[in-house]
């Protein structure tokens, strides 16, 4: 029961001609240690939603509970919450500002008011966690490659020791290998540390591969909530929302239409390979 969202509503420019309902009665619960994928086309309310989860935005209506406590209640420390619920924005490397990598990563823990040796310790741990070798620590973050900068920025959030990590399209703009590296790292955090992960991505292939559960947003409302298999069964509805299913799902459905006996819930290349080889074997 780590995060509970109840009837969350957010309206931009309320009461003006430009009024816009970004979130409309969204409710869900995310238990500890789950890997959740959040999908929806641009403008569906995903970004607004995740900014609520660590208290950066105040909702127009509804409540959010973190470990049973209402985060918008009087006296609740939002700064404390932000250290527990880490949020990695899109293109997080754009927030780097320090002279060297390690100082930049120290920024978060130092803001928590920790003693200097613990600040340093946390920063070093976080950098190791994202696979940044020690030789880079004293370098300027601006001299690193795009992928490395992004890791440093993610380390900057990890150094806060969050229990929940929210990532908004962490692979945007990276090359295919870079994308896989970042996502594998995130999966490792989830597996090794039991961290709750909320991943925003447009890649259904990645969602099928990494997420245990998918939340689908459409026009500010929660449209679907379930395992990737359950969700991708609705691929036609997803398309109407400007989304899609992994390409493998389309392969499976096309083959089923041609009379091939194969499980319709297959969502990854590995599963499809095994199932299709079995079909051929049986023939």
């Amino acid at each position: 029961m780590a995060i509970r969202v109840e009837d969350l509503t957010f309206i931009y420019n309320e009461g003006t001609a430009l009024e816009q309902r970004a979130l409309d009665g969204v409710s869900f619960e995310i238990p500890d240690g789950q890997f959740v994928g959040l999908i929806g086309h641009t403008g569906s309310g995903k970004s607004t939603l995740i900014q609520h989860l660590n208290g950066l935005v105040k909702p127009t209506g509804g409540k959010i509970y973190y470990n049973g406590e209402d985060i918008y209640s009087e006296g609740y420390s939002l700064r404390q919450l932000r250290s527990k619920v880490g949020l990695v924005f899109q293109y997080p490397e754009h927030q780097l500002f320090e002279v060297d990598v390690i100082s930049d990563v120290c920024y978060g823990p130092r803001n928590l008011g920790l003693p200097e040796d613990e600040v340093r310790q946390r920063a070093e741990d976080a950098l190791r966690l994202v696979g940044m070798k020690e030789k880079y620590w004293e370098q300027s973050p601006f001299e690193l490659s795009g992928g490395q900068k992004r890791r440093v920025a993610i380390a900057g959030v990890l150094a806060m020791n969050p229990e929940v990590l929210i990532l908004d399209e962490p692979t945007a703009g990276l090359d295919p290998k870079g994308r896989d590296e970042i996502l594998d790292q995130v999966e490792k955090l989830h597996n090794a540390r039991g961290m709750t992960i909320i991943l925003v991505s447009h890649s259904m292939e990645d969602m099928a591969r990494y997420a245990e559960r998918l939340l689908v947003m459409n026009h500010g409302k929660k449209a679907f909530d379930g395992t990737p298999r359950e969700i991708f069964r609705h691929y036609k509805e997803l398309e109407q929302m400007g989304l899609a299913a992994p390409q493998v799902t389309y392969v499976v459905h096309a083959l089923r239409e041609r009379g091939v006996d194969i499980d319709e819930d297959i969502t990854t290349v590995e599963e499809a390979r095994d199932a299709l080889l079995e079909v051929l074997q049986r023939a």
Partner: peptide
């Protein structure tokens, strides 16, 4: 450090199998 579309990869995997 590149990738292929899923259908290409699946066909390739089947071929390998």
């Amino acid at each position: 450090r590149l990738d292929v579309p899923q259908v290409t990869e699946l066909a390739y995997e089947l071929r390998r199998g």
